[in-house]
Design a protein around this nucleic acid. Structure first.
Length: 233
DNA sequence: TCGACTCGCACTTTTGAATCGG
DNA sequence: ACCGATTCAAAAGTGCGAGTCG
């Protein structure tokens, strides 16, 4: 490990906000309505999902995300590349996760079935990327990762984690907000949605194929791989 | 009774402080 | 005094499975 060169210019941004909190969600302009998608702007701000192939691998099986009381990271995580920003302007990056439909699901017969209506929608929480606000140059010079964001099923959560209902289908969204003045977020907004990052929340994996994929691709789960140290037989 | 959920466990990587060498 | 590399222990991220809850 040792030196991490990207820490050096971490001072180039001013950490003004906690990574996530309700207050920040309220201070925001209302979560951007869907009409602003990446393709709709003519100034060509672009976002690319860097680990798209991994996401698609999961998506083709039916991505499941564990949610826990204390908060669980997403795997795969969102790894993004930004381009088309003004090098010297400051931007804030946000992650939010919105319901895809009004249904509750159950895994049966090898697939996901709708078994009823969704739970009441909870107050939206956003995850503010810890580098925010930072210059366009900063965002464009590296892979942007939201792996610090955590998901929880605890509706009373006080850690600022994103609160979701189990067994519901969700779609992550990333917002890029121009912040000319750190206190005024009124600038242009861009919202990016990658359909392959859609997932269903669970408290325990339902589809064994997803478990396999996670074990084989998440380094923390290495201990469960068959070729790993853990095959005690 | 049963599906959804919780918790402790073994195993893993990551983090960060201390130490060393030049 | 400085800087980078190395070491090492603590912290934190995994799925599992037994147990709990409603």
């Amino acid at each position: 490990m040792g030196s991490r060169p990207q820490d050096r210019d971490a001072a180039a941004h001013i950490p003004l906000f906690p990574s996530a909190c309700d207050a920040a969600a309220k201070a925001l302009p209302p979560p951007v309505p869907n009409q602003l998608t990446s393709k709709s702007k003519k100034d060509e701000v672009k976002m690319e999902l860097e680990n798209s192939s991994l996401w698609k691998q999961f998506s083709s099986v039916g991505t499941e995300m564990i949610i826990t009381k204390k908060g669980r990271r997403m795997f795969p995580g969102l790894k993004l590349k930004l381009s088309g920003l003004n090098q010297s302007l400051r931007y804030i990056l946000l992650l939010d996760i919105v319901p895809v439909d009004n249904s509750r699901y159950r895994f049966q017969g090898g697939g996901w079935q709708v078994v009823g209506g969704a739970e009441a929608r909870l107050p939206d929480r956003v995850f503010i990327h810890p580098d925010s606000p930072a210059t366009g140059a900063h965002w464009q010079s590296r892979t942007i990762s939201f792996h610090y964001a955590k998901l929880t099923n605890n509706t009373l959560d006080s850690h600022g984690h994103i609160i979701l209902h189990s067994l519901h289908r969700y779609q992550p969204r990333v917002h890029v907000i121009e912040a000319r003045d750190v206190l005024k977020w009124g600038g242009q907004q861009h919202t990016f949605v990658f359909p392959e990052t859609q997932f269903i929340t669970v408290t325990a994996y339902q589809n064994h194929k997803i478990t396999e994929l996670k074990i084989n691709s998440n380094p923390f789960a290495k201990g469960f791989r068959e070729d790993g140290m853990n095959n005690k037989k």
